[in-house]
Design a protein around this nucleic acid. Structure first.
Lengths: 341, 341
DNA sequence: CTGAAAGCGCTTACAG
DNA sequence: CTGAAAGCGCTTACAG
């Protein structure tokens, strides 16, 4: 059974396609009777306008694209949920692509979205992304773009972020306040802005508080996995057995590190205090539970869509556009993996 | 800057739109020289075919819809990842909708996808779904449909499932083999097939192995959350302090229950053994780690898309279609929350 | 090897 | 109040 078209309704009723179209959209210049007839038949036949034909005419696809590094990830899946929820409210559909932290894939996917003529794009950058031509190209094509979480400062568009530097500062300061004397840091890869900022916050907290910054206490991780957490926890114990505190770039890694400490009989927080980042649900149920920075994923998703929506509307009305950067609040969640004196 | 069209390329080159279109698609009846010219210009102008115009002509949107109860969920996000990965391989894009376990939303979203003329739909049913007219309507419109995980037996379409009953049987049997004498069950809501099947597997394992089935040991949960896990663990201790084993419908709830047992000084597995279901990553890192049934989410996603893809192709070629049900293997993962004698 | 023409299913400015 | 016509950007059967 083929989908019903306006033409079929028009022929059945013996009126023109134009009138059917107008009746369905409640144009004021169609008689009540005709409207009723048309609507009834449309209902019976279960008529759904062909979105592609509509888009071709109106240039609005009512669809946005979302590119995200990884779907199976507490923080990102929360963001997705926020985006979908908000988009649906406004009648928008969301196409999701996963870049797997690869710059090449990210570029290809942006092209795909472009050819799908999405009304806008939401993106959180891959770790591998160090060049931003693909993003600037998109904007040159007049496609609204909003970046969130993993952003590029240099790209001129709207953004939703947290203050990674400040949050990392707070996390590290908390370790200092807990009495830690030698504080290590597991940082993320070199490219992403957020791993840079978290590192800077860590460093700043140390020097602001009469701690010496020791580069050998900073470990650079690649894929931020549980396994990297266990591995580098081992390395840390081998290299620096005087370390009594550690700030870790993301919860999953911190959970790996704690598992390794537990296994080796290194007590958390007595021997070493641990602070993570992101507040994955998991972090509240492990043993000891993890002190961390809460990062509002769901809210970030909602906010990102709202910004995008506003841009879409602004462009449609030919109003002048100003890019906005929204900074969301983070919270330090103190749990068992650190203890204040 | 507006997107480039075939017309612009044709005019610039002084040739017809037809020839441009054919050149771009490597039709054999276009001269090499023309092809080169066209392709070069298309490249320079960053030409992307307008997917909506293409779809309107070819009736293929190269997009599928996915309706899933909850995105922030280890198992479902793994499924999503599998679907997206496989779809991308075949040049398909995925629109994701979240039903939030609501029948009403699910119905509305199916309509949305229908009007978007997706080439097919992948769905895992909401807990609230007890009526299947919306699914049958979809199929009557000749839109390929594949259900996965949370399916309706009565709907005649392709499916990807696990054998919930058998897996639950295995889980319960494992408790029996571990020496448990009184085994409780936290089950899911009444409607979903998988919570029914897991319950039946539990029951069958008991009666097959000289255990009496006691309905008062079965607790019916609503939203399968961590909090429900802690709550019902408390209820269980209050109602039946002789219970020494429990099979829980899903890991998240089991983790809640274990947290509550830990808090009250009830030892797992010494006082009570716990088996979960799904093998969330979290289950391997909590204390004690959770014995559970591994459910292959990523693979389920891939398989579901493959089935859908095959159906799309089959219909396109007007071949006869046979629905298939693929059953994926599950594994019992034995960890610390149970111990064999 | 090239191109004119029809048509996919809509929307909307315009005429009557 | 109704409808003929143009056009969105493609694809493809057909003619030359």
């Amino acid at each position: 059974m083929k989908p019903v078209t306006l033409k079929q309704i028009a022929e059945t009723l013996g009126i023109s396609i134009t009138t059917v179209s107008k009746a369905l959209k409640d144009y004021p210049d169609v008689s009540k009777k005709t409207k009723r007839l048309v609507k009834e038949l449309a209902e019976t036949l279960n008529y759904k306008p062909n979105a592609f034909a509509v888009t071709l005419r109106t240039k609005e696809s009512k669809t946005i694209g979302l590119i995200i590094p990884e779907v199976v990830h507490h923080f990102f899946s929360s963001v997705i949920k926020g985006i979908i929820a908000q988009a649906e409210k406004k009648g928008y559909l969301v196409i999701i692509l996963q870049s797997n932290e690869s710059y090449e894939l990210e570029k290809k996917q942006l092209d795909l979205l472009l050819s799908k003529r999405v009304d806008g794009v939401l993106i959180s950058l891959a770790n591998g992304t160090g060049d931003f031509k693909h993003l600037n190209d998109l904007m040159a094509q007049d496609v609204p773009l909003v970046m969130f979480d993993k952003i590029a400062k240099i790209v001129n568009c709207s953004k939703v972020i947290i203050n990674d530097r400040k949050a990392a500062y707070t996390a590290t300061k908390h370790l200092i306040n807990s009495g830690c004397k030698r504080i290590a840091h597991f940082r993320g890869p070199l490219l992403p802005q957020n791993s840079i900022d978290r590192f800077l916050g860590y460093k700043e907290a140390l020097t602001d508080n009469a701690h010496t910054y020791d580069p050998s206490l900073v470990y650079i991780l690649e894929d931020m996995s549980f396994d990297e957490g266990t591995y580098f926890a081992g390395e840390l114990l081998k290299d620096h057995n005087d370390v009594d505190g550690i700030f870790i770039n993301t919860d999953l890694v911190a959970i790996g590190a704690i598992a390794e400490f537990n296994k080796r009989g290194v007590k958390v927080p007595e021997d070493i205090s641990v602070v993570g980042f992101s507040n994955w649900f998991m972090s509240s149920v492990i043993n000891p539970s993890l002190t961390t920075i809460d990062q509002p994923g769901y809210k970030m998703g909602k906010t990102a869509f709202k910004l995008l929506y506003k841009e879409i509307k602004t462009r449609k009305n030919n109003q002048t556009l100003t890019y906005k950067t929204v900074e969301l609040k983070t919270d330090l969640i103190v749990r068992e993996s650190t203890n204040l004196y």
